[in-house]
Design a protein around this nucleic acid. Structure first.
Length: 574
RNA sequence: CUCCCUGUAGUUCAAUGGAUAGAACACCAGCCUUCUAAGCUGGUUAUGAAGGUUCGAUUCCUUCCGGGGAGACCA
């Protein structure tokens, strides 16, 4: 595709010279796709040339269309109003689509991406799922465009939140002790560890209403933790282990993983030295109360406190440390933070502080900010119990997928049905999450998100399964190969779409936006299904059958490749 | 009070400043003796308001109205 574009751009440049004009610099990038395929396959808008040539855009287009030389890969050039439209040659497109693209080498260096970053006081919820799916997909996209990607997770495993769960757990324990019973565990309660601890967190919040003194207990617990009190640390460790085991299970179900996990408890006080060093250099300042802050007026941002007046650390203290550590650990040229938009200002300040500290890589830090996930009835609120739990959601989706599978093939083995249900359920969830552009808030309507028809993941899986079915049958009845032609409009559209894939992937990488890919894939699948219905493949005349099968293979491959970039697995049959 | 994001069919989402604002869901009417009907075809419905910049504005600027978020010792 690039080669055709380049050639057309050159031809345009030459013709413009003859007409007495100067071609715009980025002439190749001006080439666009017409809104309707009957208008052409590529379009060149002439608006910018009109002034210079002192002619109307339509006139320029008209003259340009006549002046352009004939070429093998272009069937026809025509002016339509202010546009010069090119009709590409289907055979040339087919040849291009079938030529093997060289595998991308990883030459661009390393990018670190940090995502999910959960607290260890409750299980993962819908918001984490959006974060996880986004981060995972962006990592895949960057990898596919020549970067080495390191996936990291920062676990917020210490702080007042976990202390609340601990206090609730100990309170419960006191009561049980009186009755001579042992403390419950996830095992004794047959509850997943993260849910077990989360239940105690909820319990704490509920009891807090009647007993405000519990808050003091939590504060004391935190102090004991910071002082290194052995019993507190032991309980803390035990509860965190439960939570992390539970989360691991959820990640596994989601198909998400990390190359490196950092724990807040291990680094939360490590940024202090760096801050103090910069204080000595006069880069940051101590105010009259004793707190250390960074003046960020150069960045047009409010000042940021880096150390409390009592000298203790804040969240940003460790974030500064961690950023430096990541740069050292992986020699990363860039780092991406997948974090909700409510922290937009915080991340701007973090990046500014690192810039203030003169780290060269600070200018390459990026915040992949994403909007909140809301429910049709409003915001998710843990206190009101309206939080959608990740595990529950996955269970529900799998059950629904299973029902649909059962409807279609009752004879399918339990094992296979379950395998398919998992894949289909995940495809629905991931596609739904990734299809909205990250910046937008999204409304999670359970009814729509679990739909298996229309603009959904399962629609794409189904399209792949149909293509694979054709390919299986084609193998069984191999026909003699002959050269063949793509002479129909439908096939040309498919070829054009196929040739856009690399461009689309690059755009998604540049924008850190997987929805670019999901939109493309859905559009491609629609074209494929249309083609499927209108064009016979296996029963096609011998002369063109083989090239159609080849096209089907290419289409299936591209769909799979694209879905893989979204973290979605496909099925051969469904 | 200040700053950031946001407002598109009944609903959920699209649209590098470009040609007739696209899908999906829902609703109605069709299509399985033909490669998987989780599919396909057809039908009804939208840019919050007013100005401005531009040959051209859903997109950029201003004001107003509505929604969300953030604002130095929580993150």
């Amino acid at each position: 595709m690039e080669t055709i574009k380049k050639r057309i751009a050159n031809a345009l440049k030459n013709s413009l010279k003859k007409m007495g004009g100067v071609a715009p610099l980025a002439i190749e990038s001006l080439l666009e796709s017409p809104p309707d395929s009957t208008l052409g396959d590529l379009a060149f808008p002439c608006f910018s040339l009109a002034k210079e040539l002192r002619k109307s855009p339509a006139q320029v287009a008209d003259e340009l269309a006549c002046a352009l030389p004939k070429a093998a890969d272009v069937d026809r050039v025509s002016a339509a109003g202010p546009y010069v439209n090119f009709f590409l040659n289907a055979r040339a497109l087919a040849a291009l689509a079938n030529s093997k693209t060289p595998k991308k080498k990883k030459t661009k260096g390393t990018i670190v991406i940090e995502y999910v970053s959960p607290n260890t006081n409750k299980p993962l919820h819908l918001g984490h799922v959006r974060n996880a799916v986004l981060g995972d997909s962006v990592a895949r996209i960057l990898e596919a465009t020549g970067n080495t990607v390191v996936k990291t997770c920062l676990v917020n495993d210490r702080g007042i939140h976990i202390c609340k769960s601990m206090v609730a757990y100990l309170e419960e324990g006191k009561k049980l002790e009186v009755r001579g019973k042992r403390l419950p565990t996830p095992k004794s309660e047959d509850t997943k560890g993260d849910h077990f601890v989360g239940n105690h967190y909820v319990l704490f919040e509920r009891k807090l209403k009647d007993d405000p003194s519990l808050m003091e207990s939590a504060q004391e617990c935190l102090k004991r933790w910071e002082a290194g009190d052995r019993r507190t640390r032991t309980l803390w460790k035990k509860m965190n282990t439960w939570v992390l085991a539970g989360m691991k299970e959820t990640y596994r179900r989601l198909g998400i993983d990390f190359d490196k996990t950092y724990f807040e408890s291990q680094i939360y006080d490590k940024g202090k030295d760096l801050i103090l060093k910069n204080l000595n250099k006069g880069v940051v300042v101590r105010d009259e109360t004793g707190a250390v802050y960074a003046d960020l007026s150069t960045w047009n941002l409010p000042n940021k406190i880096l150390l409390r007046k009592d000298g203790t650390c804040l969240y940003i203290t460790q974030d500064v440390y961690l950023a430096v550590q990541k740069a050292k650990d992986f020699k990363a040229r860039s780092s991406i933070y997948v974090i909700g938009s409510e922290q937009d200002l915080y991340l701007k300040q973090l990046f500014a502080v690192l810039d203030l500290f003169k780290f060269v890589w600070a200018k390459n830090l990026r915040h992949l900010s994403y909007g909140m996930v809301n429910l049709p009835e409003g915001k998710m609120k843990s206190r009101e119990g309206t939080v959608v739990d990740a595990d529950d959601l996955l269970d529900e989706l799998e059950t629904l997928a299973r029902v649909e599978i059962q409807k279609r093939d009752a004879a399918l083995s339990q094992k296979e049905a379950s395998r398919r249900a998992k894949t289909i359920a995940l495809s629905a969830l991931k596609f739904y999450m990734v299809d909205v552009s990250p910046k937008s808030e999204m409304t999670f309507d359970p009814k729509q998100s679990i739909a298996f028809q229309g603009h959904t993941g399962p629609y794409l899986l189904y399209t792949v399964a149909r293509l694979e079915s054709i390919l299986r049958k084609a193998k069984k009845s191999r026909a003699p190969v002959r050269g063949a032609a793509y002479d129909w409009l439908a096939e040309k559209q498919l070829l054009l779409s196929l040739l856009q894939f690399d461009d689309i992937t690059r755009r998604a990488a540049a924008e850190l936006n997987p929805s670019v890919i999901s939109h493309y894939l859905f559009d491609l699948a629609q074209k494929i299904n249309d083609y499927y219905h209108t064009t016979p493949i296996l029963s096609a005349p011998e002369s063109i059958r083989q090239s159609r099968i080849l096209l089907i293979a290419r289409l299936s491959g591209t769909l799979k490749q694209g879905l893989d970039l979204l973290g979605i697995k496909t099925l051969e049959k469904m």
